[in-house]
Computed example of a mutant assay.
Amino acid sequence: MLPVYMDHLLCPTLTDEQFATEVHHINGEGEDAGVVYCEMQDYESDISQLVSWKCKELFYPDKCSYRVETGGRLENLRSSCTNEKVRHFHRRFYDPCNMTVIVCGQINHEQVLAAVESVEERILQDPQRSEIRRNFVRPFRSP
C-alpha cells in the first residue's frame, strides 16, 4: 500500500469535478458546499478554534508555520481557491525533498525501502520536478 499512498500524495489526479465535490462549489440552493468547505465551516464555528487562531496570531510572527491554518479558511475557499492552485501547490511542495515517510511496527526494512524507491525513482526523473527541486525554498523560511 505504501507506493499507492505515496503516488496519491505525489501525483494527485484531482479532476475539476472532484474538486467541486471535495473542496468547494455552490449547490442548487445557492449555498456554499463541498466536503472540505463543510469541514472548515464546522471548524470555524468552534469557539475553541477561534481562540486558538487568535492566540497563534498573537504568539507567532507572520512567517511562522505554527501560525498558519493548514486546512484553509472559508473566505479563501470561497474567493480564491481553484483546482489549478491546488495542482500548483502539489507540484511545488509535495516532493520527496520535502517529505518524511514514517512507518511504524514490525517491518521488513528491505521491502519498505524497495517500495519507497519504486516511487522515488519515477518522481526524481521528472524534469519539471527537478526544476522545482533546484529552486525549492521551504515554506515559511523566506522573508
Results as ranks from 00 to 15, higher is better:
residue 135 N to M: 05
residue 132 I to M: 13
residue 135 N to G: 02
residue 118 S to Q: 06
residue 51 V to W: 05
residue 56 K to N: 02
residue 142 S to I: 00
residue 36 V to P: 00
residue 81 C to A: 05
residue 27 N to C: 03
residue 39 E to R: 01
residue 45 S to F: 01
residue 3 P to Q: 11
residue 131 E to D: 15
residue 30 G to Y: 14
residue 93 F to L: 02
residue 96 P to R: 13
residue 39 E to S: 01
residue 30 G to F: 12
residue 109 H to K: 15
residue 15 T to P: 05
residue 119 V to C: 01
residue 126 D to E: 11
residue 55 C to Q: 15
residue 48 S to R: 08
residue 124 L to Q: 02
residue 56 K to I: 07
residue 95 D to W: 12
residue 142 S to R: 00
residue 89 F to H: 13
residue 19 F to R: 05
residue 75 E to I: 00
residue 58 L to A: 14
residue 21 T to P: 01
residue 37 Y to T: 04
residue 135 N to E: 06
residue 100 T to H: 15
residue 57 E to K: 09
residue 106 Q to N: 08
residue 70 T to I: 09
residue 64 C to D: 03
residue 2 L to H: 06
residue 42 D to W: 07
residue 112 V to H: 14
residue 53 W to Y: 11
residue 94 Y to E: 09
residue 99 M to G: 09
residue 75 E to D: 10
residue 134 R to H: 10
residue 102 I to R: 15
residue 127 P to R: 03
residue 60 Y to D: 13
residue 27 N to Q: 05
residue 2 L to A: 08
residue 119 V to L: 08
residue 13 T to K: 11
residue 5 Y to Q: 00
residue 83 N to V: 13
residue 56 K to A: 03
residue 77 L to Y: 00
residue 61 P to N: 00
residue 133 R to Y: 07
residue 22 E to P: 00
residue 105 G to W: 14
residue 56 K to L: 00
residue 20 A to L: 10
residue 127 P to H: 11
residue 16 D to A: 14
residue 75 E to T: 04
residue 96 P to V: 14
residue 46 D to I: 05
residue 28 G to T: 13
residue 106 Q to W: 09
residue 58 L to T: 11
residue 119 V to P: 07
residue 130 S to G: 00
residue 45 S to G: 04
residue 62 D to S: 07
residue 54 K to E: 09
residue 68 V to W: 02
residue 128 Q to K: 09
residue 92 R to V: 13
residue 130 S to E: 09
residue 39 E to N: 02
residue 30 G to M: 14
residue 140 F to R: 01
residue 109 H to M: 11
residue 46 D to N: 13
residue 60 Y to E: 09
residue 118 S to I: 09
residue 142 S to G: 04
residue 33 A to H: 09
residue 114 A to F: 08
residue 132 I to G: 06
residue 17 E to W: 08
residue 78 R to C: 08
residue 40 M to G: 08
residue 133 R to N: 13
residue 5 Y to H: 05
residue 116 V to M: 15
residue 32 D to T: 01
residue 105 G to P: 07
residue 76 N to F: 00
residue 36 V to C: 02
residue 129 R to P: 12
residue 42 D to N: 03
residue 71 G to M: 00
residue 8 H to T: 07
residue 118 S to R: 14
residue 67 R to H: 04
residue 117 E to L: 13
residue 68 V to T: 00
residue 80 S to N: 12
residue 94 Y to D: 06
residue 29 E to I: 02
residue 7 D to L: 09
residue 84 E to W: 15
residue 133 R to F: 09
residue 137 V to S: 00
residue 101 V to Q: 14
residue 103 V to A: 12
residue 97 C to D: 14
residue 85 K to R: 11
residue 92 R to P: 03
residue 143 P to M: 02
residue 122 R to H: 05
residue 128 Q to M: 03
residue 43 Y to N: 13
residue 55 C to R: 15
residue 69 E to S: 05
residue 65 S to C: 14
residue 21 T to F: 09
residue 42 D to Q: 06
residue 59 F to E: 04
residue 16 D to Q: 07
